[in-house]
Amino acid sequence: MVHNSLPLQWRKYPERYYLRGNYCENCKTSFFPQRQICPNCRRKGKLVEKETPYTGKIVSWTEVSVAPFGFENETPYFLAIIELENKVKILSQIVDSKKEKIKTGAKVKKLFRKISDIDPEGAIAYGYKFKVVD
């Protein structure tokens, strides 16, 4: 299962643990996840590693009632597209938030949570989830 691919998870720690993305110094655009080539500047682009802000606002959201393999016991759960303060968009679960507060425009902040822990004897995948802040 790709979920439990250890080399993949391990490579993703900076992205999933502390939102490491990158930034093109040529066109002043932030990217998350990191890109190998700046899609705006291509060869002229100058990408440097950069952390993404931990706060942003909800652009759209959904309450998932039917889950894929590995998430069956988590339903219902909320997913949102979030625009972070550097304009980068990120898809994440929203937890620890009352349903009525989860709406477009709501401010959110990043948390550190377990994302996938389906094999009791396997490795745990940690990463980001967000919560609504007043």
């Binding site: 998932v64 988590e74 997913l79 996938s116």
Partner: peptide, 8 residues
């Protein structure tokens, strides 16, 4: 960035 987070 989508499936990993439970997106369907």
């Amino acid at each position: 960035t989508e499936l990993f987070h439970g997106a369907t």
